[in-house]
């Protein structure tokens, strides 16, 4: 009886406003008790992975101890193959009455024979993201959806970034052949049917010139994969992969998920790969990219080259401010202002 034991002292100065405090409290507690576990004592002795700074961590051995079957070891195929890691990032610059100015930048890193050899970096390009922009450029047809995306800053930022990245991916696909293209994340973008179409189109493009697209995911949000990755962590030897049972609800029909470990000292990663992908693609990837702790260097560099540093943030604001003659309205960090020291003392998710 967690709540019942709390010994509530009802002696509050409510008399003036004519409130039956005892009844109020009783009802409150009854209501909460419906979904608060009354007793956590049955958890005693359970194995747990503590979260750190509000983030989940990867256990180095499985919690469940479930066996996912034998790992499929594969070898390195040193046939020279171009590996391209692509990543993008976006940065909100300022908010206007009718939308936000968001800057986007993408980078691609080309590797071959186990070494990175060149990079492209495009941007930053600032976009004025309004509901018209969402409709005309980000491919959302329904006006109500477009306007609710434009209203939601987080949503419009991620849609812009993905559209931006996809258009670069599409161009690269049409120029390359028999290459392996790595993207950061999963295919299941899925907040519209349009995304599914886009995905289909990209996979089609890739097929035409025998390119393979592989999505690398660093930490899986899906509990079962997360646990499975841990059980693979301790398996000696690499590279290998394993096909876990179907788990991701949003996961598309065109692709499938595997878990792979490319280096003995590396982590296990989730890969989203087109269904028709042959194992040879993994063999070529393993030989043609450099891996650091099991993660392909092309993707790692692409990520670092496109993320915005705090300093670039400052420069970009200064540059746009000067060029457009933006008038800066005094502003406050509301969260900071309201929650103040209590906020900075805590470490909740942001």
């Amino acid at each position: 009886m967690l709540l019942g034991n709390m010994g509530i002292q009802l002696n509050l100065p409510f008399s003036r406003i004519n409130l039956n405090q005892e009844q109020l409290f009783e009802e409150l507690i009854t209501e909460i008790s419906k979904f608060v576990p009354q007793d956590l004592s049955n958890l005693r002795g359970r194995r747990a992975v503590y979260c750190s700074g509000g983030r989940s961590r990867q256990p180095i051995s499985s919690l469940s101890g479930k066996n996912l079957g034998e790992p499929n070891f594969f070898s390195n195929d040193v046939t020279s193959t171009l590996v391209v890691g692509i990543d993008s990032s976006s940065l909100p610059v300022c908010d206007l009455e009718d939308g936000s100015i968001i800057a986007a930048r993408a980078s691609a890193v080309f590797s071959n024979n186990g070494e990175p050899m060149a990079y492209l970096r495009l941007g930053p390009y600032p976009y004025h993201v309004t509901s018209e922009f969402v409709m005309s450029k980000l491919g959302i047809n329904k006006e109500s959806l477009a306007s609710s995306i434009a209203q939601d800053k987080a949503l419009s930022q991620s849609l812009l970034r993905k559209t931006f990245e996809r258009s670069i991916l599409a161009t690269l696909l049409s120029h390359l052949s028999k290459s392996i293209i790595l993207i950061d994340g999963t295919f299941g973008y899925g907040f519209s049917s349009l995304e599914k179409l886009e995905e289909k189109r990209l996979l089609g493009l890739a097929r035409q010139k025998s390119n393979s697209i592989l999505g690398f995911t660093k930490v899986s949000r899906i509990r079962e994969l997360w646990d499975a990755a841990s059980s693979l962590f301790s398996i000696k030897g690499a590279p290998f992969y394993i096909k876990p049972p179907k788990v991701d609800a949003k996961h598309s029909s065109e692709t499938e998920i595997i878990l792979a470990k490319f280096r003995d000292d590396g982590f296990v990663f989730r890969l989203d790969i087109p269904k028709e992908t042959e194992i040879n693609v993994l063999e070529k990837l393993s030989a043609n990219d450099h891996f650091d702790r099991g993660y392909p260097d092309s993707l790692r560099l692409a990520h670092h080259f496109c993320v915005f540093t705090q300093h670039e943030d400052t420069c970009l604001k200064g540059r746009l401010g000067n060029e457009l003659g933006l008038v800066e309205v005094p502003s406050d960090d509301q969260r900071q202002a309201i929650l103040g020291w209590m906020w900075s003392a805590g470490r909740g998710s942001k």
């Binding site: 990175p116 990079y119 970096r121 495009l122 930053p124």
Partner: peptide, 14 residues
């Protein structure tokens, strides 16, 4: 590595 960049707002030079 060597690379190519397009930086129309010249953030790099700023």
């Amino acid at each position: 590595i060597r690379g190519a960049e397009h930086d129309p707002y010249e953030i790099k030079s700023v």
